[in-house]
Structures are given as C-alpha cells and as structure tokens.
Amino acid sequence: MAARRSAIGPIVLVLIIFMVLLSLRCTEATRVLPEDFARANNLASYSSSTLSRQARQSMARWLQRLDSGPSPQGPGH
C-alpha cells in the first residue's frame, strides 16, 4: 500500500506540470482579416421573411431525409 502511495505523488506532479505547459502554449493567427472586415457592406443582412423562408426550406430538407415507416422492433424499442 505504501508503494502505491509513493507512486501516485510523482504521477500527479507530472500531470500538473503537463497541464501548466499546455496552458502556456501560444498560437498565432492562421490568417489575417482585412481591415474593413466590420464595415456594414461586408455584413450580410437578411429580412425576416428571407430568414423564415430559408428556415422552412432547411427543415423540409431535414425532414425529407428521415426514414419513413415504422421503427424497427428490437431491444430497447
């Protein structure tokens, strides 16, 4: 039992050091955004009717992909 306790301490210490090293890792941007990214002409604007029509079309496509008919009878059904 004492050997097991003495092995747990170094393992926990290594895990803590590993977590600290992972949190210190720095990354750079993969791409640079243009300066005028936040301008109004770059933002897409949709009317509420356009959004609702697109939502209905998306739901219709998702529902068409569902299997029709009874569900399989098996364990858990």
Rank of each mutant, 00 (worst) to 15 (best):
A2Q: 08
R4G: 06
R5L: 13
S6R: 15
S6G: 02
S6I: 07
A7R: 09
I8T: 09
G9L: 13
G9T: 14
P10W: 00
I11A: 10
I11R: 08
I11F: 05
V12W: 02
V12T: 09
L13K: 12
L13N: 12
L13C: 09
L15W: 03
L15G: 09
I16N: 02
I16Q: 02
I17V: 14
I17H: 01
F18A: 11
F18L: 14
M19E: 06
M19R: 10
M19W: 06
M19C: 11
L21A: 04
L22H: 02
L22N: 08
S23W: 09
S23N: 14
L24W: 05
R25L: 03
R25M: 07
R25S: 02
C26M: 15
T27K: 13
T27N: 11
T27Q: 12
T27L: 10
T27C: 08
E28Q: 12
E28K: 11
A29Q: 08
T30D: 15
T30G: 15
T30R: 15
R31K: 14
R31M: 14
P34D: 02
P34T: 02
E35P: 11
E35M: 13
E35T: 14
E35Y: 09
D36P: 00
D36N: 14
D36K: 06
D36L: 02
F37T: 06
A38F: 07
A38P: 00
A40V: 10
A40P: 05
A40I: 06
N41I: 08
N42H: 08
L43K: 12
A44L: 07
S45W: 03
S45L: 04
S45N: 05
Y46A: 01
Y46T: 01
Y46G: 00
Y46P: 00
S47Q: 03
S47H: 02
S48N: 10
S48H: 06
S49R: 04
S49A: 09
S49V: 05
S49M: 04
T50L: 04
S52G: 01
S52N: 07
S52D: 05
S52I: 10
R53H: 07
R53M: 03
Q54G: 07
Q54T: 02
Q54V: 03
Q54S: 07
Q57V: 02
Q57K: 05
S58L: 12
S58V: 04
A60P: 00
A60E: 04
R61S: 03
R61L: 07
L63F: 08
L66F: 03
D67A: 13
D67H: 10
S68A: 13
S68P: 01
G69D: 00
G69S: 00
P70Q: 03
P72D: 05
P75N: 06
G76C: 09
G76H: 10
H77G: 15
H77L: 09
